[in-house]
């Protein structure tokens, strides 16, 4: 087997070419240009407002790109949608919504079910299995607002597992969870990687980066560094990512926004 951290010529699962993202004409992420190799566990790190969530949302076409393109296994995202599993930020949904844990996980199967059809018993079985994998089988019928933060995060993870994807995008899966849940989640991520899946994780805790990830993307409105953790996760790059504000970029962004508004 080839070394997954240094792939040779396989088609990369994710190719991002010259991608720039803007909110209300103000660029928040500039000229991202990178290939993510197959079968690696990637941490996306950077300060608040660095564009971490923006990057994975843009890859998944959830927000428009100002320029550039993304390819998934050398194909446009539209054709490869079902190859990507997604764990959004926990705060992005209304936890008082009247569904139970199993319902939420079953949503991960909707892409396979197709329009106008109902989930089959096979879909239900996969959903139940996914809940089991994250240790939440006994909470299947529990209304989601009655779950703790860590349990809610596990349900989201189970939903992504139910998607049965080749690539996983996770937006801060470790935010606000207890140590046991963090352990359980990382165990599952490692298992996914051992199955050859590619996993991108927006991450905040710098302490655990070297332990968890074999690849990192260091962002601050642009890609400061990207590559194998032991090569790019250096003090110098950390300093570039977190040290001070990237005044040139944010000033340029502000100037562009002002100009468009006609100031």
């Amino acid at each position: 087997m080839s070394d997954p951290v240094h792939p040779t010529e396989a088609v990369p699962p994710i190719q991002i070419h010259d991608m720039t993202i803007a909110y209300h004409k103000k660029p928040v992420l500039w000229d991202v240009d990178l290939d993510v190799p197959e079968g690696v566990l990637v941490g996306i790190i950077g300060p608040n407002g660095a564009g971490k969530s923006t990057m994975i949302k843009a890859v998944m076409d959830l927000i428009p790109k100002a320029s550039g393109w993304v390819k998934i296994y050398d194909r446009p995202y539209d054709q490869m949608r079902s190859a990507i599993g997604y764990v959004p930020q926990r705060e992005s949904v209304d936890w008082d919504f009247p569904v139970n844990a199993l319902d939420v996980v079953l949503m991960g199967r909707y892409g396979h079910v197709g329009w106008l059809r109902r989930p089959s018993s096979e879909d239900r079985r996969i959903a139940a299995e996914s809940l089991e994998k994250v240790g939440m089988a006994e909470f299947a019928q529990r209304q989601i607002s009655q779950l703790s933060g860590g349990q809610q995060q596990r349900v989201f993870l189970a939903r992504a597992l139910a998607q049965d994807a080749r690539i996983y995008m996770m937006d801060e899966p470790f935010a606000g969870v207890d140590a046991a849940t963090e352990r359980a989640i990382i165990d599952i991520l490692i298992e996914l990687r051992s199955q050859g899946k590619t996993i991108l994780v927006v991450h905040h805790d710098l302490q655990t980066v070297t332990a968890y990830f074999d690849w990192v993307i260091m962002l601050n409105m642009r890609v400061v560094a990207a590559g194998p953790t032991n090569e790019v996760f250096t003090d110098e790059n950390l300093q570039k990512t977190y040290g001070g504000r990237l005044t040139v970029l944010s000033q340029a962004a502000q100037a562009m926004a002002d100009h468009r508004r006609g100031n």
Partner: peptide, 22 residues
Amino acid sequence: CTLYKELKIASFDSAMAMAVGV
């Protein structure tokens, strides 16, 4: 009835809905 599951996922989590092709 026909769009029940689509209405459900789009109301609960529109980003996820988009991600699974709804």
